[in-house]
Amino acid sequence: MVKTSDFNFKSPLDLLAKFPSQERDESRLMIIHKNINKIEHKFFKDLPKYFEEGDVLILNNTKVFPARLFGNKEKTDAKIEVFLLRELDSEDRTWDVLVDPARKVRVGNKLNFGYGLTGEVIDNTTSRGRILQLHFNGNHQKLIQKIKEIGKTPLPKYINRNPEKNDETRYQTVYAKIEGSVAAPTAGLHFSKHLLKKLEIKGINLVEITLHLGLGSFHPVEVEDISKHKMDSEKCFIGKESCKIINNAIKKKKRVCAVGTSSMRAIESSVSSDKNLNPFSGWTNKFIFPPYHFNIANAMITNFHMPKSTLLMMITAFTGFNLTMKAYEIGIKKKYRFYSYGDAMLIL
């Protein structure tokens, strides 16, 4: 049995990146050559050196939704934070949300967000989860627009600061297109437009897929037997043209690199019997942990993740447990920055 406790390490609190690097592609990049157990230390702008014409980078083009609202309880005026996870029904205007502090929010409570937007709690889902029905004098499009106007960038809780103007752009990838995520696909945050252009000029295929991140990937694993952990479902889209380019690269034995755990989870959710990628439109709750055979990508870009997280478990499945833990030990020693705004690693 693979145990959750196997993936624990002392979290380097002084290395948690609370702000992005000054320039996207100037973050540090650890290169892990898993077949020869070799580790190099570069910068993200060095990435094109490791790819050749015909190789593929798979990018998750999801866009972060300003999902954090701040309101007050009717009557008591208590301040409540509401995190919009996903819209359940556009006609009923019901949303799956998290609330904080949860102990103050019960079924029947009404919340006022200002600007004509209110909500009523109509059900419980988890200890912090609620079903919230929004009320606004306007059609669905105007409701969404109002949420975007007053909502805040949903920075991860560990950052522990108010969002700044810079976060609106830096907590998005430069290729973000399709709105729907409540968390950024952070491996993609390191790409600048200039770096993408350099990759294109070299003949590297930049292929886009979409997986809208919820908070499921970041939920702690609360069971010791990780095979018993259940992932939340997330919406995923993989188009025919993307499949064609990726499958052609696989056929030609080119490097196929998943940019981030979300891209990897998406492509591993739609594999054909002959180990090619199929078009896909639907929901996935794919949970990848060791041992696991990867079918599509033979390279991966990712950030440095939290102990005992599902993200770290995927990385160990791809890289190998011992080499991953060695890389993390070296990363801590060499002061790599961790988590969403942190540094990156390229696994080859």
Rank of each mutant, 00 (worst) to 15 (best):
residue 274 D to M: 00
residue 274 D to W: 05
residue 274 D to S: 12
residue 274 D to Y: 06
residue 274 D to A: 00
residue 275 K to P: 00
residue 275 K to L: 07
residue 276 N to I: 01
residue 276 N to L: 08
residue 276 N to K: 14
residue 276 N to T: 14
residue 276 N to W: 00
residue 277 L to C: 04
residue 277 L to Q: 01
residue 277 L to G: 00
residue 277 L to F: 02
residue 277 L to K: 01
residue 277 L to N: 01
residue 278 N to A: 02
residue 278 N to M: 10
residue 278 N to W: 04
residue 279 P to A: 03
residue 279 P to R: 05
residue 280 F to E: 03
residue 280 F to W: 07
residue 280 F to M: 06
residue 280 F to Y: 15
residue 280 F to L: 12
residue 280 F to P: 09
residue 281 S to L: 07
residue 281 S to G: 03
residue 281 S to M: 04
residue 281 S to R: 05
residue 282 G to F: 02
residue 282 G to Y: 00
residue 282 G to C: 08
residue 282 G to L: 01
residue 283 W to F: 12
residue 283 W to S: 12
residue 283 W to M: 07
residue 283 W to Y: 15
residue 283 W to I: 02
residue 283 W to N: 08
residue 283 W to E: 15
residue 284 T to C: 07
residue 284 T to W: 08
residue 284 T to V: 12
residue 285 N to A: 13
residue 285 N to R: 11
residue 285 N to V: 01
residue 285 N to I: 02
residue 285 N to E: 15
residue 286 K to W: 00
residue 286 K to Q: 11
residue 286 K to A: 01
residue 286 K to N: 11
residue 286 K to L: 09
residue 286 K to H: 09
residue 287 F to I: 13
residue 287 F to M: 15
residue 287 F to D: 14
residue 287 F to P: 14
residue 287 F to Q: 14
residue 287 F to G: 08
residue 287 F to L: 11
residue 287 F to T: 15
residue 287 F to H: 14
residue 287 F to A: 05
residue 288 I to G: 06
residue 288 I to T: 06
residue 288 I to S: 13
residue 288 I to A: 05
residue 289 F to E: 14
residue 289 F to D: 05
residue 289 F to C: 09
residue 289 F to P: 03
residue 289 F to W: 11
residue 289 F to G: 01
residue 289 F to S: 14
residue 290 P to V: 13
residue 290 P to I: 08
residue 290 P to H: 12
residue 290 P to F: 09
residue 291 P to T: 05
residue 291 P to M: 04
residue 291 P to E: 15
residue 291 P to V: 00
residue 291 P to A: 02
residue 292 Y to L: 11
residue 292 Y to G: 03
residue 292 Y to V: 11
residue 292 Y to I: 02
residue 293 H to M: 04
residue 293 H to K: 15
residue 293 H to A: 02
residue 293 H to I: 04
residue 293 H to W: 00
residue 293 H to R: 14
residue 293 H to E: 09
residue 293 H to N: 11
residue 294 F to G: 02
residue 294 F to R: 03
residue 294 F to Q: 06
residue 295 N to F: 09
residue 295 N to C: 10
residue 295 N to W: 08
residue 295 N to V: 03
residue 295 N to D: 14
residue 295 N to T: 13
residue 295 N to G: 05
residue 296 I to P: 00
residue 296 I to T: 00
residue 296 I to S: 02
residue 296 I to H: 04
residue 296 I to D: 01
residue 296 I to F: 02
residue 297 A to G: 12
residue 297 A to R: 14
residue 298 N to R: 12
residue 298 N to Y: 11
residue 298 N to I: 07
residue 298 N to L: 05
residue 298 N to T: 09
residue 298 N to D: 15
residue 298 N to Q: 12
residue 298 N to F: 08
residue 299 A to G: 06
residue 299 A to H: 05
residue 299 A to F: 04
residue 299 A to S: 15
residue 300 M to T: 08
residue 300 M to P: 03
residue 300 M to W: 06
residue 300 M to I: 12
residue 300 M to Q: 09
residue 301 I to A: 10
residue 301 I to C: 10
residue 301 I to L: 15
residue 301 I to M: 09
residue 301 I to S: 07
residue 301 I to N: 08
residue 302 T to F: 02
residue 302 T to I: 06
residue 302 T to D: 10
residue 302 T to E: 05
residue 302 T to A: 10
residue 302 T to S: 15
residue 303 N to M: 03
residue 303 N to D: 13
residue 303 N to Q: 07
residue 304 F to H: 13
residue 304 F to D: 15
residue 304 F to A: 13
residue 304 F to C: 12
residue 304 F to Q: 13
residue 305 H to K: 03
residue 305 H to G: 08
residue 305 H to M: 10
residue 305 H to S: 06
residue 305 H to A: 08
